[in-house]
Design a protein around this nucleic acid. Sequence first.
DNA 1: CTATGTTCTTCTCATAACGAGTTCAACTCA
DNA 2: TGAGTTGAACTCGTTATGAGAAGAACATAG
Lengths: 273, 273
Amino acid sequence: MSPDQRPADESGFLAAYDPRDYDPVSVTVDVVALTIRDGGLHVLLVRRGAAPFAGMWALPGGFVRGVRDAEDLPDAAVRELAEETGLSTEGGALDRVHLEQLGTYGAPGRDPRMRVVSVAYLAFAPELPDPEAGGDAADAGWVPVGALGLTEAGGQLPGTTRRLAFDHARVLSDGLERARAKLEYTPLATAFCDGTFTIPELRAVYEAVWGEELHAGNFHRKVLSVPGFVESTGDTADRGGRRGGPRPRLYRTGDARLLHPALLRPGREEQIR
Amino acid sequence: MSPDQRPADESGFLAAYDPRDYDPVSVTVDVVALTIRDGGLHVLLVRRGAAPFAGMWALPGGFVRGVRDAEDLPDAAVRELAEETGLSTEGGALDRVHLEQLGTYGAPGRDPRMRVVSVAYLAFAPELPDPEAGGDAADAGWVPVGALGLTEAGGQLPGTTRRLAFDHARVLSDGLERARAKLEYTPLATAFCDGTFTIPELRAVYEAVWGEELHAGNFHRKVLSVPGFVESTGDTADRGGRRGGPRPRLYRTGDARLLHPALLRPGREEQIR
DNA sequence: CTATGTTCTTCTCATAACGAGTTCAACTCA
DNA sequence: TGAGTTGAACTCGTTATGAGAAGAACATAG
């Protein structure tokens, strides 16, 4: 909408009205950056050094530059991700990172100091280096998602050692559900892989994100039967699987933007009601 | 994230830093409210009376109350929708409206006057009364979506009489695509219907949103085969179809939150690449 | 009232997709 | 060298799908 559309009973103040004069809202971006390490799904977190929530873990993020050096929201997300990972924005590994908007969180009181509306972004990345802690972050690193004890309700199980600050358990839960859903009907799983990959590597991505094992034969058949999902490079990998087996063939991402038919998660009949 | 997570080179200014002092950003909500009238999909629009974009049409929306009478984002969306439709927030037709967050739009320059970050919401409503124009809105009403000449790229065809202000063509296009996708795998089509409805009425909703005719027999079979999508009331409608035919049976929404199997849009093979 | 055309609902049928399991060769590691 | 593992391709029964047909119930024109 336009900022000057507001209730009729305020129309007399139109010219003088500026919500910033008395109703300040700050805008930040947070990034849910996901990658796969050691066969498991990891998220990029920083440990807070200052109050509030000192000592707890939080998603990387920061203020959107509003007027001075104004930046678009995705640019702010990339900037925060680059600052946190220590990677350059240009010509580096960040080019292969898929970034999409996840949602916006603005409940009053979510930050105890001020009114903050936070635009969350979701990033899918191939394996990236460990971040360096810096600034007011006491620590930073890729944390296994399974170690956070996330609940469906957007909270954390009691007894989880790594507590998440603000409403970041909710944001992260939403990001994980988005990632799981996106793998079903888009080829974004390849964003977790390098330029070339094997079908078993792709299957490992699905298994890490979905958290369950898949039928290798059926997965293989489905991936190859979806037009444009992957295309063969003609090569084979250097060696076989970890504990034996033939050398798998290599593929790269195809030109499909949607998977048809989709690769649906098995056994969701219980979660449907 | 937290507002105090920012680059290390600013950490010296931590205590004194307040982005509102020099970097003001305003937050608004816009609502893409969809309903079905006369068998066609309509969106709620208001015509702007003041510059910028005077005379053009815009999505209803307005500022989020930040600190004084602070409200959550969905509450702000409901409030704007209620103000625009003239319907009461409580105990009225708005209870049956499905509301979900669509996305956030914050490109610099999208509002020529100031930096505005706008959180868009998507509303699915059964038939609602005509709104009353008020305040600085020159006119307001339910506009057939097809009359807006929307393009896939988020613009409008040249020659379209009703021009959309700001980036609202993009927002509306995103909302329509979301609506089309949601009908595939959720029972939200019933949000466009009254408490009880017939399968042909439900099919009319799908046809209006998807913009194509569906095979009546197959649609009927699929709706009844999805567990929890609809449940029979045991009654039949008062009369048959508009031009004849038996009286269809009445159903109400079931308890399913996801459709399995999904009702996929036909003929999307071309849009996949 | 009758005739005509429309619509709801349930079929059939051929094709496509799926889950589960099998087979076999290629490979790693002890 | 042998045992165990894995990639890739296959089978088979079940389920989902698109296209079409059939028949009964109904609205409307005459």
